[in-house]
Design a protein around this nucleic acid. Structure first.
Lengths: 109, 109
DNA sequence: CGGATAGTTCAATAAAACCGAACTATTGAT
DNA sequence: ATCAATAGTTCGGTTTTATTGAACTATCCG
């Protein structure tokens, strides 16, 4: 009963949904990894290793429906990419500055 | 039994707490009004008119403890300002791009 | 003083996140 | 073609967080 993925049109993406999605530490980490990688990344690779799968799935749904990532089934896995060009056009500087700032809050341990 | 306000040092402000604080539509609206005004603004003026006072108070606490605003009691009211210079130094471009982007998501009614 | 104004605190309810368990879909080996 | 393994999804119950009415505090002004 696997439902197809829902991706909002870029003009329907709201700033608040993006901020909401990125406000969660796990989701921000996922986005950092996806943004840092060179090609589409599957969920298990992008998510923290110890994250329960149901939680992982939930976080990817939030990121997708917020408009941050585009996901595609590829065989048994789901690969996702950041919708960076579209988002930069819609909300200039927002994603970029957040990703840059996120490096500053590195673990101090 | 009114407790004194707690303002984190700018270096203790985390990106996630800022994103979390701004992800709420009411709080984003409050920040927009405070940022748009020329001088320190009291809570009732900055908050949407129909917002219950207890909710208003809660939202201001979140904004304050996230490090976004600095509040001060002035007689019977509490006035707040955006900590923009500090925040711009800590997370360059983040607040500015979000505020700019927030104009784009105007009500379509 | 007493009333008005501005905001806070508490406690109860409502909403949302989290995650284990059961499930689906695809692949690859036999 | 069947079977096991892999990757992710869905459901439902529990925990956590948000919201708000009611009672309270603190200050101002007449």
């Amino acid at each position: 009963m696997q439902r197809p993925f829902v991706h909002p049109a870029v003009d329907d993406v709201s700033l608040e949904s993006i901020l909401y999605a990125l406000a969660d530490p796990v989701r921000l980490e996922i986005i950092k990894r996806i943004a840092g990688g060179t090609c589409a990344m599957n969920c298990s690779t992008a998510a923290p290793a110890d994250l329960p799968k149901s939680t992982q799935s939930h976080h990817f749904q939030v990121l997708r429906e917020a408009g941050l990532i585009r996901s595609e089934r590829r065989g048994t896995e789901v690969v996702s990419v950041l919708r960076c060009t579209e988002l930069e056009k819609r909300f200039p500087g927002v994603i970029g500055s957040i990703l840059k700032a996120s490096d500053k809050t590195k673990k101090k341990i």
